[in-house]
Simulated scan of single mutants.
Amino acid sequence: MSALREIAAIYRASKKKRDINWWTEWVCRPPAAALVYALRHTRVTPNQLTFTSLAVCALAGAMLLAGSGWLWVLAAMLVFEISFVLDCADGQLARLRKRASVLGHLLDFLMDELKAMLLYGCVAVHLWRFSDEPYYLLIGVGGMFCLASGIALTSFMRRPEYGAPPPTEDGQPAIIQRRAGAVGLAVTLLEHAARVVVHYPSYILILAALGRIDIYFWAYTAVNLAYMGRCLAVIGLRLGRFEPGVERGSGSESAGPAQPPGDEPS
Rank of each mutant, 00 (worst) to 15 (best):
T221C: 14
A233Q: 11
S252R: 12
E243T: 04
T42C: 01
W72Y: 15
G211I: 08
R18I: 11
L106V: 11
I235F: 08
A226D: 09
S254Y: 06
E253N: 05
A60W: 03
D87I: 03
L4E: 13
E243N: 10
W22E: 07
L137M: 14
L225R: 00
P173Q: 04
L78K: 00
R159M: 13
R158E: 15
P30A: 04
H41V: 07
L189N: 09
L185V: 12
L49E: 05
L127M: 10
S101F: 05
D170I: 08
A219N: 07
L65V: 11
Y11P: 00
R129M: 14
E247S: 11
P173E: 10
R29M: 01
M111V: 15
K15E: 03
S155Y: 14
V223R: 04
A208G: 08
T42Y: 08
I235W: 07
K115Q: 13
M228E: 10
P167R: 06
L147N: 00
A55S: 11
G229S: 13
E133C: 02
E6K: 06
K16A: 13
L137P: 03
K115W: 04
V187L: 15
T52F: 06
L49A: 03
K16W: 03
P257A: 13
K98C: 04
Y220R: 02
G140R: 02
S53K: 04
P257F: 12
M111L: 12
M144N: 05
L138K: 03
R241A: 13
Y120L: 10
S14L: 02
R29C: 02
C146Y: 14
A58C: 12
Y120W: 12
A194E: 14
L225V: 14
E133I: 14
R159Y: 10
V56G: 03
W72N: 09
T188Y: 13
G140I: 01
W72L: 10
A9L: 13
I235Q: 04
G67M: 01
V102E: 14
E113I: 01
R158M: 12
A258C: 05
A76C: 07
A89Y: 00
Q177L: 12
A66Q: 02
